[in-house]
Design a protein around this nucleic acid. Structure first.
Length: 555
DNA sequence: GCCGTTTTCGGCCCGACTGTTTTCAGTCG
């Protein structure tokens, strides 16, 4: 439904529709996409941004998978013309112009027309524009420039390290600061001299300078990722950070409140006429607007602004809240560090409990046996003596078979402190089979946590198809936790499904799934996912003290 | 098309950069 409304907004804009109505459709699409309940099961008017007219379209869509006005516009605008607007620097106005005046109806046709010189002398299309469009179509073909948080965070930290010598202040903002699981570009904010722009353009990670002015420079890395560097005056640091962290929807909502007060908010500050009200810190700005400071991970216009106005923001789970890790590997299976190394590293991180969960025999490639597992349990018993302040739990990562069964019979499973069960194969089962598979696993009394539930690998493998409402209902009923696997190319569950699961009363485990010592620190990404889903420490079983956790695992 | 303790009608976020139509429209975030 959200995708249909999004498409309608775009087509409506291209056919000369009123810009404010376009925005209404976009707003409604986002609200529906982020709504935590089944949209078919609630009065759709209760979704903010959905009024009478859109509710009608939603109802028709739920009936037959489309609505009349969308069908009409699809008939008027060829699919390829819509794709034209995906070309950078080519928006709806130019796309429609190219179609109507020159019959260009796809990015491919555009390339052809430019090469034939058919744009020569056309008003608004000079030589530079032609060049940009040609390159834009090429980039569109390569596409897929979004990267997961792990890649983006590495790059952002490298960029900051390369510039911080010449900057007074520097930090990343944008979707990375909001900890989205994928980002399309990186926004860096800095206070410093204008020469910082030249330093930036001269860095080895710059493959191409896209735009360059006094206040903003945009570059592209050799991997195709865009990086924007914005310079702000020192006294506007907080306003700049707030502005460039977004999200756009959050900022639009915030400004509506600002405008009602007769004030103005920009990246330079919060103003009443010429009088500066706040700018130095984000806290000052939110406070001046009568609300608590809103953590970046919540800034998606998903209800955080009304909550902040009421002083009712959740106390989000933090990395410091996590007391242990419930899903890790050693070199007994596919890990690269020994049991002793992993345990020592976990202890150094201050964990109060730590579970070793190597793969069970059904993942045949790891050649696991019950004998090896019991031998590992013995080694853990011995090792425990060296770590009186950290409880070492012996666990396993079980394999959920196509029918929902797991590796061992109940009497073997009962010997483990904790069992994580995950899908590792047969990813393309039907929705019904996959749902039954997960429900069966949840109903196994020895399964405590479902590992990386959707099994997606960002950019490489799509999520499996299941009726998640039904899976989460089963998880809540059976007291089975859902994992937030912190590996940045997994981020699994994703935040929207975490929010849905929480709605059903499910608990979560934020695990590293570490296969090496440095992976233990990936949990910061999992915490980002959890925060984006509004989780508190009470929702997360490995933020609980050991005795409460053991109750959960034993019950 | 949506929305409402200043409104059921009249508003709807704001600024930077580019290329070109030399004063601004289009695009982007």
């Amino acid at each position: 439904m959200a995708a249909a409304l999004e498409e309608y907004a775009e087509l409506f804009a291209m056919t000369g529709g009123d810009a404010f109505r376009v925005r209404s459709y976009q707003k409604a699409a986002k609200a529906i996409a982020g709504f935590p309940e089944d949209i078919a099961a609630v009065p759709v008017r209760s979704v903010p941004g959905v009024g009478e007219a859109i509710a009608k379209k939603v109802e028709e869509y739920l009936q037959r998978g489309s609505f009349r006005q969308l069908d009409d516009l699809r008939g008027k605008v060829p699919e390829g013309v819509r794709r034209l607007t995906r070309v950078p620097s080519l928006g709806p106005k130019k796309a429609v112009f190219l179609h109507q005046e020159l019959g260009i109806d796809s990015p491919e046709a555009l390339t052809e027309a430019i090469k034939q010189g058919r744009l020569k002398g056309v008003k608004g299309f000079g030589a530079k524009t032609e060049e940009n469009l040609l390159r834009g179509v090429e980039q569109l073909e390569q596409a897929n420039t979004r990267v997961h948080t792990g890649v983006a965070m590495d790059l952002a930290e490298r960029i900051i390290a390369s510039l911080e010598g010449g900057a007074e202040r520097i930090a990343y903002a944008g979707s990375l600061r909001r900890m989205k699981d994928t980002v399309g570009d990186i926004d860096i904010l800095a206070v410093g001299p204008e020469s910082l722009m030249d330093d930036f353009k001269a860095q080895p990670y710059v493959a191409e300078v896209i735009a360059s002015g006094e206040k903003k420079t945009s570059i592209r890395t050799p991997q195709g990722l865009q990086v924007d560097l914005r310079l702000v005056p020192a006294e506007s640091w907080g306003a700049g950070l707030q502005y460039f962290t977004g999200s756009q929807a959050h900022n639009v909502h915030l400004r509506e409140i600002v405008v009602k007060k007769g004030w103005k908010l920009s990246e330079y500050g919060l103003f009443d006429g010429d009088r500066l009200i706040a700018a130095e810190s984000e806290e000052d700005i939110y406070q001046a607007l009568g609300m608590e400071w809103i953590p970046p991970t919540l800034r998606e216009d998903g209800g955080e602004i009304p909550a902040a106005l009421k002083g009712a923001l959740p106390e989000l789970v933090t990395l410091q809240d996590l007391k242990g890790d419930l899903h890790t590997h050693t070199n007994l299976t596919d890990g690269i560090a020994s049991l002793e190394e992993m345990v020592a590293a976990a202890h150094a991180l201050g964990h109060s409990y730590y579970a070793v969960t190597d793969h069970a025999p059904d993942l045949a490639m790891h050649r696991m046996t019950l004998e090896k597992m019991l031998e590992q349990r013995e080694r853990i018993r011995e090792l425990q003596g060296r770590y009186p302040d950290m409880r070492i739990l012996h666990g396993a990562e079980l394999n959920i078979g196509p029918d929902g069964s797991v590796d061992w019979p109940a009497e073997v499973l009962a010997g483990f402190d904790v069992c994580v069960a995950s899908v590792h194969s047969h990813f393309t089962q039907s929705r019904e089979e996959m749902t039954r598979r997960f429900v069966t696993a949840c109903e196994n009394p020895h399964v405590h946590v479902i590992g990386h539930p959707t099994t997606r690998l960002i950019g490489r493998r799509p999520p499996v198809d299941a009726d998640w409402d039904e899976v989460f209902r089963a998880a809540a009923r059976t007291g089975t936790a859902m994992e937030i696997d912190s590996f940045p190319d997994r981020s699994d569950l994703p935040a929207d499904l975490v929010r849905l699961a929480r709605h059903h009363g499910v608990k979560f485990s934020i695990d590293s799934d570490a296969h090496a010592v440095p992976h233990l620190e990936n949990r910061r990404f999992g915490v980002g996912v959890a925060q984006r889903a509004w989780l508190t420490a009470d929702d997360v079983i490995n933020a609980w003290p050991l005795d409460r956790l053991l109750d959960f695992l034993g019950g």
